[in-house]
Design a protein around this nucleic acid. Structure first.
Lengths: 251, 251
DNA sequence: CACTCTAGCCTGTCTGATATGTTCGTGTTT
DNA sequence: AAACACGAACATATCAGACAGGCTAGAGTG
């Protein structure tokens, strides 16, 4: 009698979402595939439409991946959702970029400390490699920036905390979109690149020595310098409206 | 020729989502309402179903609120999405709770420093009030815990960083679900409550004195103690399976 | 003026049909 | 025999029309 009969024709969707969610968490691993919409509709006693909407909702929550022609596959957790949230916040209020920098400071400083405690020798070797890549790319802003990002991502990974990795990942996207990238390029061109490398070396060496406090301090200094240069550049050339190819055409 | 005509009948949904997104960000404020599904379908030249799915997708991303009978309203940004992400991560791997504690440590330590720099006298007064509430509730675990949470939320607000507020909000939900709440109650019963109050006072006083370093240190100590006690309790009585009313009945 | 109640709007769900993308087995070719 | 091309079966994407149930505001009543 407790089998939920479709007496209420209005809460069916939510019920289907819950049941699919339970199915995904309790019986399936990331990468596995779900039955097709038709099969699920029949099994759950609802229409294909309802299953479809449930699938889309779960996709939006990062639990499923849906492509036309293929059955839905269970998605591995990733920071895309959180990145979306940050992007939305910035889009609603551009000043939120400064808040993003605060968040990054908080996370990276802690990451540096954790990495100093938990990094393996292999991790340290990888970090060193990225610093070398930066040295080799002082004249190539793109490559320099890429190596910079990889260094920070690797450091997050070395903290052995997957959530921190996701969060750093989520932060880098909206920060990059906010013209901080062109800034990084600008930064790399001048002799500032050497300072940036030096700051990364300081972090790396602190991690190698397993000195959490020094790693935190080095990271804090690095981000403070980055933010200071950024603010200086923004004052110098404040938000030049991105010159896209769009001349006119606002539907 | 580049006006997206519905020649492709397969990318219509994504296009509608993008257009609605632009509409929401560029022309509407939180609280305003969108046209009904039917109107939008007609205006965009697609079927009601497509608009409906777009609406649900935007709802899942935290941009809309949809209730039966009412037209969709633009939602204010909130941390629910991020909270969902954390909850999902924990559900996939319960050990992620420890990662959550790391994240909280990172954020709260930074929040304490920012609050020391930015808090107004009114903020400090509010914080003091919550400490008083904790003092008055040493024998009422529920109220004690509530005041504790309010203190931390208020501190985040005093950092003048809305993203940090959302993140703290997002963290508290899954942490509470992870039986940390019963722990807080347990903690409040013993004389540990006095220690906890003392730790909050230390944070409060550091903020009042505008001493960012001291505030950070006090917060770090507080969270370290909390985590230490938590681990001790988990070792003492490891995950007692929640005794619900369910005797038997797994579908 | 306050209260009720209903008509109309809106979302929730179902049915059935067509278009488009994916996969995999089959058959052909080299 | 192996590699490639092709098509049938399957799966999702979208459309159209219909009905059920929730919500709101304005008409009507006391």
């Amino acid at each position: 009698m407790d089998e939920l009969q479709p007496a209420d024709r209005t809460a069916v969707g939510a019920s289907v979402i819950e049941r699919l969610e339970a199915l995904i968490f309790d019986r399936l691993e990331p990468g596995e595939i779900l039955p097709s919409e038709g099969k699920l509709a029949e099994a759950l006693g609802v229409s294909r439409l309802t299953v479809r909407e449930a699938n889309r909702a779960l996709e939006a929550r990062g639990l499923l991946e849906i492509r036309q022609g293929c059955r839905p596959t269970v998605a591995a957790p990733n920071g895309a959702l959180v990145g979306d949230f940050f992007k939305i916040a910035v889009r609603r209020d551009p000043r939120a970029v400064l808040d993003l920098l605060d968040v990054r400071m908080a996370l990276e400083v802690h990451i540096a400390a954790l990495a100093a405690k938990r990094a393996t020798t292999a991790d340290v070797a990888d970090l060193e490699m990225f610093v070398e890549a930066m040295r080799a790319a002082v004249d190539q802003p793109e490559a320099f920036h890429a190596a910079d990002v990889r260094f920070h991502e690797k450091l997050a990974a070395a903290s052995s905390n997957r959530l921190l990795v996701f969060l750093i990942e989520a932060l880098s996207e909206p920060l990059r979109e906010s013209r901080l990238r062109s800034f990084a390029g600008h930064q790399a061109r001048g002799r500032g690149a050497e300072d940036v490398i030096e700051q990364h070396v300081a972090i790396l060496e602190a991690v190698r020595r397993r000195n959490a406090k020094a790693a935190s301090a080095a990271m804090r200094y690095h981000l403070q310098q980055t933010e200071r240069d950024l603010r200086a550049m923004l004052r110098g050339a404040p938000l030049r409206p991105q010159a896209r190819g769009r001349a006119s055409g606002e539907t």
